[in-house]
Design a protein around this nucleic acid. Structure first.
Lengths: 333, 333
DNA sequence: CCGGATTGTCGAAGCGGTTCAACACCCTAG
DNA sequence: CTAGGGTGTTGAACCGCTTCGACAATCCGG
């Protein structure tokens, strides 16, 4: 293993000079810097991450706790993770990937000084992890808006507004017989923050627009999606408008509508809450509130890095939704 | 920060005793162990990861380099990542998530002693990362079979056999006018290992079964998928059988077939290479070679952990495919 | 031409663990 | 009763890096 000592010897300077050359925390003459850099290149020196972490109390690692379970929209997760990892790298940070279902992952990586900061996805309205991160000395960003954030920063897509705008798009087109096919029952039961806000927004808009508020959750499996569609058609016999927030169920629902002889958008208009590429990659391109998952991931990293850089402003950011019209919505005939 | 010193003082023993209690590398009397564990619990002690890494030359972190780009099948990636992370945690390892497109990520985390081992996804036939990992002291497992693995272990789904069996399934049903809609052109151009093997298998089986070998790559966007379907129908006018290996294109292709008045499976039989849940979540449940991505991830971790535990057997493992019949295949009429 | 800044470099003290060699103690066999 | 062999515990060296205080050399204005 080549250490900072080897570099120092080769460059004919002291270890501290090498360290300062690397960190730039003291001025180094151009000639010395050149000699050190040459030695580093020749030896292929990479500082030992553990030693650095020990001495500097910084690991340059971010923890990202993601819901690696099947009942979430994989595309959204993936894009979010991608946003986090790529942005983190631009600031010379690495990302440690954790699952939710570990007992006390937060405490382990936090108290163990394994990471400098945390990003928690899939936050619930009353998430048990919030007191855990609040007790940590590392800053944290939550994806989602818990009831009580306890001074922890939050960021998320504005699902409430997205639900409202989705329904409004349908009612403005003239649809009165509408329904929402939503996230899995388990997600709702957990009071996952985004699901709570989604339902709240949908309900508010339904009341506002004077249409019946029919909400049917559904899982990711084909059978569940079909059942949800059945239930919805049962409750709203002359259904002409559908809002769907369930990436996995989307194709099945479209197939189900077709099998009943219902054409999209001629007979039924469909609005989805999904990333743009998912909406576009359906049998019929779907009008959707595009979820900018990549962007949210980047913002989360920016927020957490700002805290690491010394800022102590705790903020909550909501990313405004935009409707993207594709081929799945039309006025009722 | 509570350190091992605090624990030692509180338990009335030396630091080395605490350390040995934690690691179990020396015998400790039951009473001492109890006192130490009590102190640890009371203080909420978590060993400092950096200090531990420095002293023991072990970080208990695995690097996972995943293709976080849009032209890959997100479900497969997600499931694989999930398999890796969950299995790693059972062995008290954490996972550092890296992207391919970083310049020298392998060298950075390897030489920098950030990780104990690496897992590389999306390996190309002549992957530039292979010499890099071969130069590292950390063991590595490749997902995919490069031409020259240079003594690095490999594991993957047997895409060659999967392609053969997919086509064979169609020809056995009596289909003669068949085609393959494959991975994105860029993936093929890169000579991604799985794409190479997929095409090889398909070609071999086409020759063996005496059918024309029509292969059309396609990207993940709707336009590309439609174009690919057009091209295929152009080349094979009386098409009755289709093999698809492109998760994102699948729904679009099904939509395109329908728009042309072609029913699945009455007019066209479709076999996919995809994870079971993806195949099931289509408008029509698709007969598929189920890609056991979760399992492959677990196996990759097992292999790398075996190397860390001292085994020096370099092996290549291929996971055999199994066909799962759903509702998308039937004899031609 | 001198005193005080400024600039560039260095030595050494940690950071918080692991692990080795040493040692005290107790048990048992001869 | 003693030699010999565990068993349980300890002190101290060490892992590779960062950073503080010290210091020599150079520069500048008065």
């Amino acid at each position: 293993m080549v250490t900072i000592n080897d570099v120092a010897r080769r460059a004919g300077v002291s270890v501290s000079t090498v360290s300062y050359t690397l960190s730039g925390k003291r001025t180094i003459s151009a000639s010395t810097r050149a000699r050190v850099e040459k030695a580093i290149a020749e030896l292929g020196y990479h500082p030992h991450a553990g030693a650095r972490a020990l001495a500097s109390a910084r690991t340059n690692i971010l923890a990202l706790m993601a819901p690696l379970r099947p009942d979430v929209d994989v595309s959204v997760i993936m894009q979010f993770v991608t946003g986090v990892v790529t942005r983190a790298r631009t600031a010379d940070y690495d990302v440690l990937l954790l699952t939710q279902d570990e007992d006390n992952g937060v405490g382990r990586v936090g108290s163990g000084s394994l990471v400098d900061a945390l990003i928690l996805m899939d936050v619930e309205s009353d998430d048990p992890r919030i007191p855990q991160v609040a007790a940590l000395r590392q800053p944290t960003v939550l994806i989602g808006l818990p009831e009580d954030a306890r001074g922890v920063s939050c960021v998320d897509f504005d699902f409430e507004a997205a639900a409202r705008l989705s329904l409004r798009h349908l009612t403005r087109l003239g649809h009165r017989d509408v329904a929402l096919i939503g996230p899995p029952p388990a997600v709702i039961a957990r009071h996952t923050s985004y699901a709570d806000r989604l339902l709240r927004g949908y309900r508010a808009q339904a009341t506002h627009d004077g249409v019946a508020c029919v909400i049917e959750p559904t899982g990711t499996s084909r059978a569940e999606a079909i059942a949800a569609l059945d239930a919805v058609l049962d409750q709203v016999p002359g259904l002409t408008g559908l809002v769907v927030h369930n990436e996995a169920a989307l194709p099945v629902i479209l197939g189900g509508l077709r099998r009943r002889g219902l054409k999209v958008p001629e007979d039924v208009s469909v609005v989805a809450l999904a990333p743009a590429d998912v909406a576009d990659a359906q049998p019929v391109p779907i009008t959707a509130m595009d979820i900018p998952a990549l962007n949210i991931g980047q913002v989360a990293v920016d927020m957490v890095l700002a805290r690491l850089a010394g800022s102590d402003t705790v903020e909550t950011r909501l990313i405004a939704p935009t409707l993207h019209e594709r081929a799945s919505t039309a006025p009722p005939r």
